[in-house]
Design a protein around this nucleic acid. Sequence first.
DNA 1: ACGCCTACCTGCTTGC
DNA 2: TGCAAGCAGGTAGGCG
Length: 300
Amino acid sequence: MPELPEVETVARDLQRRVTGATIADVEVRWERTVRHPQPPERFVAELGGATIRRVDRRAKSVLIHLADGRVMTVALRMTGALIVADAGDPDDRYARVVFHLTDGRQLRYRDVRKFGRIGLYEGGGLRMSARRRPARRVAETREVYRVGDVFARHGPEPLASSFSAARFAARLERRSARLKSLLLDQSFIVGVGNIYADEALWRSRLHPLRAASSLTPAEVLRLHRAVRAVLRQGVANRGASFSDFVGADGGPGANQERLQVYRRTGEPCLRCGTAVTRIVVGQRSTHFCPRCQPLGASER
DNA sequence: ACGCCTACCTGCTTGC
DNA sequence: TGCAAGCAGGTAGGCG
């Protein structure tokens, strides 16, 4: 389940392994993986001969920057993975898009459930979207899309130095939504998914159903620190692997062993021993300690 | 602004 | 053993 730490791991692996590589040919095995605005045939035609200059991450997407300034975005969603395969490696029945490199290797986009999407855009606009700006829909008739437009309505990057506690407080103050739902909302803050939302709330001792605007300054500070801490720890451990998450090196992460509440329903809270409770919030399973993360009647 | 629903997909686990 | 239902969860889009 790729969230920020898992996507960051993939991006770093790729940066190390495919920078400078040239794409000879592209094989699209599941058309819907290639998203608007590029029809699959055009996508393939426009990528032939392209050289990879750099790979990084934005929100939960891997950005593959090409030498000519264009950017390929890879949203892994649930089960997506980018894997570098050497010439002669056995084929993968779940490889949905295969980028054949001129050196004989393959960059494979593997995705069991086919939720992930790959796009190809003109460069530009990424810096601006780091700041708040008016939500603006991309005109449907436009031929050229800038990669920045893809992220125009996304929230701040929680690990950026510009993401201060004060800024977080200002955003939380205006919202009445429940903390769990807000943390998962990519227009509020990017990179946090179900695992790290539960972990951050446990760490900051906040109930998932607390209204964002009800937090005291001290609680905001705890949550701000917790979100950053759990994400940093995730990155340090190369992400959490449950079913089939792997980095581009093919190896699993180690962070699942460090998780404190996620998927520990019924097991003792690692702070107080109370059984971890599971509830459903916004259709998502949510794990928390009812004793460490109380929901006072006055806090609703 | 927000919650709720459905759709997108497949594999694994659970229950009969 | 077989089979079907349930579950997993990131995100877009629709509705109220």
